[in-house]
Amino acid sequence: MQSKALSIPGAWVFEPTRFEDDRGLFVSPYQEAAFVEATGAPLVVAQSNHSVSRRGVIRGVHYADVPPGQAKYVYCPRGALLDIVVDVRVGSPTFGAHEAVVLDAGSYRAVYLSEGLGHAFCALEDDTVASYLCSTPYAPAIERTVSPLDPALALPWPSDLTQVLSDKDSGGPTLAEAAAQGLLPHYLP
């Protein structure tokens, strides 16, 4: 498995080796040894999530209050999605920056984002599956959203797709509004 740190501190991309023959394919999208080597710590898994989205569905930008926060290890076992990590941590050297990675069933590439980072994705195909391992269970009282359409973030959503958002995501505050309301986590180097 190959790994690479993204430009946002606390985020990495992982690409596993695929083993194919006339029977089909074997791949291991998460490998603890490679994860620890890249990040310096093991991934604690408290919950796994699985979503299915039609083409054009945007989910996010989601994050959780820190502490406890929620780290995520995300991959796409079916279809394709544009996965975006957004630095919503006040005081971070990359505050407001984002990095986008295509995750798809052809590469089984994965993205890891540590606690305090925002996460969003857009399904590029119908019936796209996002599967992610989470460090803490879902806790609605500490879940937060920043608008994925915030013009200041300028997230690279595909222009050829009809965007479909939940009421929660479409009604989320901008990054500046969330900061003014004290809703953002703080960067801890």
Score class of each variant (00 low, 15 high):
M1I: 06
Q2F: 13
Q2R: 15
K4G: 06
K4T: 14
A5Q: 15
S7K: 15
I8K: 05
I8Q: 07
P9S: 12
P9M: 11
G10N: 11
W12C: 05
W12A: 02
V13F: 07
F14P: 00
P16G: 13
T17R: 15
T17G: 09
T17A: 15
R18P: 01
F19R: 14
R23C: 07
F26Q: 10
P29K: 00
Y30Q: 03
Q31C: 05
E32Y: 01
A33W: 00
V36H: 05
G40E: 07
A41K: 14
P42Q: 07
L43N: 06
V44S: 13
V45M: 10
A46G: 15
N49G: 11
N49L: 09
S51E: 09
V52E: 12
V52A: 08
V52K: 13
S53M: 09
S53N: 14
S53A: 12
R55A: 14
I58L: 13
I58P: 00
G60C: 08
Y63I: 03
A64T: 10
D65V: 05
V66W: 05
V66S: 05
P68W: 03
A71G: 14
P77C: 11
R78Y: 07
G79K: 11
G79S: 13
A80C: 09
L81A: 15
L81D: 06
L81P: 00
D83G: 09
V85S: 01
D87W: 12
V88Q: 02
R89F: 10
R89H: 12
R89Q: 15
G91Y: 12
G91T: 11
G91M: 12
S92E: 10
T94E: 10
F95Q: 08
V102K: 08
D104P: 05
A105D: 15
S107W: 01
V111I: 10
V111C: 01
V111W: 00
Y112Q: 06
L113I: 13
L113K: 02
S114H: 10
E115R: 13
E115S: 14
G116K: 04
C122S: 14
A123P: 02
E125G: 02
E125Q: 15
L133K: 14
L133N: 09
C134F: 05
A139F: 03
A139E: 13
A141Q: 11
A141V: 03
I142R: 08
I142C: 03
E143T: 04
R144M: 07
R144S: 05
S147E: 07
D150Y: 07
P151H: 08
A152G: 07
P156E: 09
P158D: 10
T162A: 14
L165C: 08
D167S: 12
D167M: 04
D169C: 06
G171I: 02
G172Y: 02
T174G: 03
L175W: 01
A178R: 04
G182L: 06
G182S: 06
G182R: 05
L183E: 12
L184T: 02
P185C: 07
H186D: 06
P189Y: 00
